[in-house]
Nucleic acid binder design. Structure first.
Length: 289
DNA sequence: CTGCAGGGGTAAA
DNA sequence: TTTACCCCTGCA
């Protein structure tokens, strides 16, 4: 653990607001204007943009350069991705321009699983609150600049937490799901390490679906937003349904549009980067509200 | 002030 | 295919 700092000069496609507000993560918060603070993979960091440079500093377990490159997906060519998506039609052109600074983070798999189980039928402020309380109670404390931060608890740290304790933290009906999923992962009934080695995304998806509290939408979010990094999945929530229906299907009642129809359309239009298209569309539509 | 819908779905009926 | 589900917020 040591304090480190890095300046990324002239990075392309990197806007802190777009990255942290596009709905993929729950532990980043704006402090002062344009400056975000967050905890990821045991590190505490502050991220801000100055001119064309991105400045990142904080307490890091390992080399900051390596950690940042991986977490912020710096080795992917987002410019090329946006060009490709923008060529599809004017809707896509508008949405990639709107979310030009988006990057899909490589978040810790375990943390992503638990966070998105908590997200089910829930709103963002409450999801964030639950995750903070969970981290404060069961994670590790890190002090930086006289301020206290808490890492996301490991499966081992949640091993003996009871369903009732989760309920007291405000998890609601998700208490049982969190307990069961933690046990399944600790028992290796579902083996997370194997998932990295398996290139067949649909097989990995099936394994995720075995976890309590993981349905189709949550499974797809885990595949896309974790360091499993499967960009071809297309998570369908109410907003994605809305934007896809408005732009392409135009059914008077959006709730009557079948998931299968949306999935087919996404695959045909966006192919193996459907997940990225989803993110630009979601962010664009959601910020317009 | 009370009542109620709805929120980045899932599991059970 | 439909319904209940914890809890919080916004709004009638």
């Amino acid at each position: 653990m040591q304090e480190q700092k890095i300046v990324l000069e002239k990075v392309d496609s990197f806007e802190p607001k777009d990255i942290f507000d596009c709905g993929q993560c729950f532990r980043w918060n704006e402090q002062e204007e344009g400056s975000y603070e967050g905890i990821f993979k045991g590190n505490v960091a502050k991220v801000k943009k100055e001119g064309k440079d991105i400045i990142i500093e904080g307490i890091f377990k390992e080399d900051i350069k390596k950690s940042v490159e991986e977490y912020f997906d710096l080795n992917r060519d987002y410019k090329q991705i946006k060009r490709q998506l923008g060529k599809i039609d004017n809707n896509m052109k508008t949405s990639v321009e709107y979310g030009a600074g988006i990057r899909i983070l490589n978040q810790d798999l375990w943390e992503t699983i638990i966070s998105f189980i908590i997200s089910a039928n829930n709103n963002i402020p409450r999801i964030k609150g639950i995750i903070e309380r969970l981290s404060k109670k069961y994670g590790n404390k890190i002090t930086w600049n006289n301020k206290e931060y808490y890492t996301f608890p490991t499966a081992e740290q949640l091993k003996n937490v009871t369903i009732q304790e989760y309920r007291e933290l405000g998890l609601g009906f998700r208490d049982k799901r969190l307990y069961e999923t933690t046990q399944m992962i600790l028992n290796k009934k579902v083996n997370l390490n194997e998932m990295y080695k398996n290139p067949n995304t649909m097989e990995v998806r099936e394994q995720l679906l075995e976890l309590s509290g993981v349905g189709p939408k949550v499974a797809d979010c885990i595949l896309l937003f974790s360091d499993l990094k499967r960009l071809e999945v297309f998570p369908i929530d109410v907003w994605v349904r809305r934007v896809i229906n408005d732009l392409y299907i135009k059914e008077p009642n959006e709730n009557k549009v079948s998931k299968a129809k949306i999935e087919k359309l996404a695959k045909e239009k966006f192919g193996d980067i459907a997940g990225l298209a989803q993110q630009y569309l979601f962010y664009w539509r959601r910020e317009q509200a």
